[in-house]
Nucleic acid binder design. Structure first.
Lengths: 367, 367
DNA sequence: GTTGGCACTCTTGCCTTACGAGTGCTAATT
DNA sequence: AATTAGCACTCGTAAGGCAAGAGTGCCAAC
C-alpha cells in the first residue's frame, strides 16, 4: 500500500526530527515546522495510523512517536532527500585523504579515520582481494648463510623475505633454485603447491638442505595473505557520543563486537555493489545479533589491482543517513580516484548517488 | 619519614580492598580482615594519620578512605606482594602468543590483544626502532616498463617496491643503476641522501629518465619508515567495565585520547628499562593531561633486530597492579623469547620481577 | 597506647507529589 | 467527509522530604 503524500511528509518529519533530537517527537512539534498546513490534531490522527501501519511506535502511551526500523527503511529508500556536501566538507575530505601514495593498508586506515571524524561514528574499512598467482621469483644471494626471496604476484604486489640459514650454500645453488621456481611455480595458485610438487622440485634441484621447502612455504604464505581480506576499525569511542549508548554495558557490547575485527567480514561482502552506490542496513536487517539495533552504512570503492574495498560507518538506527551517505560516497569516490586503475567519473558526479538497501525480508530494492 | 609497620599494613589493606570493590573502605572492613589484631577504633586513628600524611583521602566526611596517588605509589613501590601466576594463566598466555613466527606488527597486535584480554584493560604495544642504514640494493628488471627495487637494511629488514615507468628502459641501464647505488648509497643514513648527492649519481649513471630519483626516494622512504615507531592499541572498550568510567564522557575523553595513536609515543620511551622490569605510572605521574587520573603499567621486551618494544595497559588508578604486573611481565618475557635474538632467561625466572616507578617529582626509584 | 561507646555527618535509596508533554476522543466547523 | 478546537486522561520525570545506614571523630575508661 502506498502512503498518502501527507503521511510521507509527516513520516519524514518525524524521522528527521528524531534524528536531530533523539527525543520522541510529538504532533505539535511537527505542526510547528510549518511544512504541513494542518493542525496538530490532524497530525495526531495521521500519526496514529502510521503507528498501526508499523512505521512508528510509542515508547509508552502519552509519549511522542519514534520511527521503527520499517519507518527508517521507508525514509531511507523513498523519502530522504539527497544531501549535498558543502564546499568546506568536500575540501576537508580531499585534504584528509591527501595525495601521496601510501601503502594500501595505511591508506585504508587513514580513510577510516577520516570517515569516522567526518561522521562522528565508528568507521570500518575492508578490502577483499581476488585470488592471485605468482608471476615471478627472484632469489638474491647475500652470503653463504643468507638470501632474500622476492616474489611478485599477478596483481603486481611484491613480497620479500630474508632467510638466514643454519648451513652454507653457494651462489650457484641459489641461482639454480631461482630458475627452477620460475619454471615450475609461476602461474600456480595456492592449492597447486602440494607437498608432492615440492618434493619433486626438491629432487630436481638436488637440494638436500630443505631450501626448496622454505621457498615454497613462503610462496604459499604470500599467496594466502594476498587473498586475505583486511579489515580496519577506527573511532569506536565515537559511539559514546550517542545518547543511545549512554549505557556503558550497551556501548561495551557493541564496541567489543566491533573491535574483534573478524566479525567485520560477516558483512554482506558478496555483493559489493557498484560505484556510487551506498548500502544501508537498518537495525534488524543486520545479520549479526549485536547489530540488531544499530545501522550500518557502506560505500564501496575501487581499490586498484582488481580489488574492491568497502568503507562504512556503524551507528544507532537513529543515524543521520543522509549526511553519512553523502560523506561516505564522497570518500569512496576519493579513494577510487587515488587507488583505482580505471577511469573514474570526475568528482562533480559524486552526489548523484544511488542508495541501495535491503528490506526486512532480505530482498534488494532500489530507490 | 618511614611509616610504622602497622600503618603499612593498614595502607596495604585499604588499597587492596579498594582495588577489589571500588568502594571507599572503612575502619570496620579492615578490622574484619583479621590481619591486624586491633579494634576498628585504633584503625580509625591510624587512618586519620594516613590521611594527614597524604596517603589516603575521604570523598567526604563520614565516608570510607580511598588511596591517593601517593598511597598507590607507596603500595606499588614497597607494600605490594609480587603475584605468582597460576599455571592456567601462564599456559593461557603461552597459548595465546602461539609459536608461529609472524610479521612483527601482527605479533605485536596479537600480544596487545592478549594483554588486554588477560587484564581486562586496554593494552598498548609499541616498538621503537633504532636508526638503520641501507646495506644493499637489488634492482630486478621485469620488462621495459617495469622493475622492482629491493632494499636490505642493516637491521636485516627487507623492503621492496614495484616501479612502473611511463618510458622504456633496457636491462643494462637497470644493472648500471644497481651497481651505482650499491657503490654509493650503502651504509648511509637518511640525512645523507641529499638532493646534491642524488644529482651527482644521476649524472654518473647518465640517467635522463629520473630513475635515480625514484630509487633514491624509495631509499629515503624505507629509511624513514624503518625508524618510525609503531604503536598499536587494543581493547579500548574494556575501559567501560570499570566503574570509574561509567560516565560516558569521561570514558570517551580517555578513549579518544588513546585511540589517536600518536600520543602513545609521548610515553617515557627514552628509558626503556631492562628485561623483567615493570614501570608503573600512577595518575599525576603521567605527563599527559588526559592520563592524570589513570595509571599505566608497562613492560619492555626484546623485539629482535636490536629493537626494544613496550607492552602495557591503561586503566584507572584503582588498578590491580600486582596481577597486571605479573601478567605483563610474563607476556613480555614470552615476546622476548619469540622475537629476541639473544639468549633469554628460561620462563621460570619471569616471576622475580623488578618493579620500577617514578615518584611524583619525576625521579626514578627502585624497590 | 588501646578500646568501647556515642553523637554527628553525609550519602543513598525510596516514596510522594506536582508538573508537563502528549495523546485520544468527542463535538463543532468547514 | 475531512479538519479542527477543546478537554480529560496517562505516564514519565524532576523535586522535595524522610529514614536508614555506614562511617567518622572524639571522649572517657582501661
Amino acid at each position: 500500500m502506498e502512503l498518502s503524500s501527507r503521511k510521507k511528509k509527516i513520516l519524514a518529519a518525524v524521522v528527521e526530527e528524531y534524528i536531530r533530537t533523539a527525543e520522541p517527537v510529538g504532533s505539535k512539534a511537527i505542526a510547528a515546522t510549518g511544512d504541513l498546513k494542518c493542525s496538530s490534531a490532524t497530525i495526531r490522527n495521521e500519526l496514529a495510523e502510521l503507528v498501526s501501519l508499523g512505521y512508528l511506535e510509542q515508547p509508552h502511551t502519552s509519549a511522542g512517536r519514534v520511527p521503527t526500523p520499517l519507518g527508517y527503511r521507508m525514509y531511507v529508500s523513498e523519502l530522504m532527500e539527497r544531501q549535498e556536501l558543502s564546499p568546506e566538507e568536500t575540501a576537508a575530505i580531499d585534504r584528509g585523504l591527501g595525495e601521496r601514495l601510501q601503502e594500501t593498508g595505511q591508506l585504508m586506515n587513514d580513510a577510516g579515520r577520516l570517515a569516522s571524524q567526518m561522521t562522528n561514528y565508528p568507521a570500518l574499512t575492508l578490502a577483499a582481494r581476488p585470488a592471485a598467482t605468482i608471476s615471478r621469483f627472484d632469489l638474491i644471494y647475500i652470503d653463504a648463510n643468507t638470501f632474500i626471496i622476492v616474489v611478485m604476484l599477478s596483481n603486481d604486489t611484491v613480497q620479500n623475505k630474508l632467510v638466514h640459514l643454519p648451513v652454507s650454500v653457494d651462489q650457484s645453488m641459489i641461482q639454480k633454485l631461482g630458475t627452477l621456481f620460475n619454471a615450475h611455480f609461476t602461474g600456480v595458485s595456492e592449492e597447486e603447491i602440494t607437498p608432492t610438487v615440492i618434493h619433486a622440485a626438491e629432487r630436481a634441484a638436488e637440494d638436500n638442505l630443505g631450501l626448496t621447502a622454505v621457498i615454497a612455504a613462503f610462496a604459499i604464505e604470500v599467496l594466502s595473505t594476498a587473498q586475505e581480506a583486511q579489515a580496519y576499525l577506527v573511532g569506536e569511542s565515537q559511539l559514546l557520543h550517542q545518547p543511545e549508548f549512554r549505557d556503558p554495558d550497551k556501548a561495551h557490547r557493541l564496541m567489543s563486537y566491533l573491535s574483534d575485527g573478524g566479525h567485520l567480514l560477516d558483512l554482506p561482502l558478496s555483493d559489493l555493489g557498484g560505484e556510487n552506490e551506498i548500502r544501508v542496513l537498518i537495525g534488524p536487517e543486520n545479520v549479526a545479533e549485536e547489530l540488531k539495533d544499530s545501522s550500518v552504512v557502506i560505500a564501496s570503492y575501487d581499490a586498484g589491482d582488481n580489488m574492491r574495498g568497502l568503507i562504512g560507518v556503524v551507528g544507532p538506527t537513529r543515524m543521520d543517513y543522509s549526511k553519512v551517505a553523502a560523506k561516505l560516497s564522497f570518500i569512496a569516490a576519493g579513494l577510487s580516484r587515488r587507488l583505482g586503475g580505471g577511469s573514474m567519473p570526475p568528482p562533480g558526479l559524486d552526489n548523484k548517488l544511488i542508495i541501495k538497501g535491503e528490506d526486512s525480508n532480505g530482498q534488494t530494492e532500489e530507490s
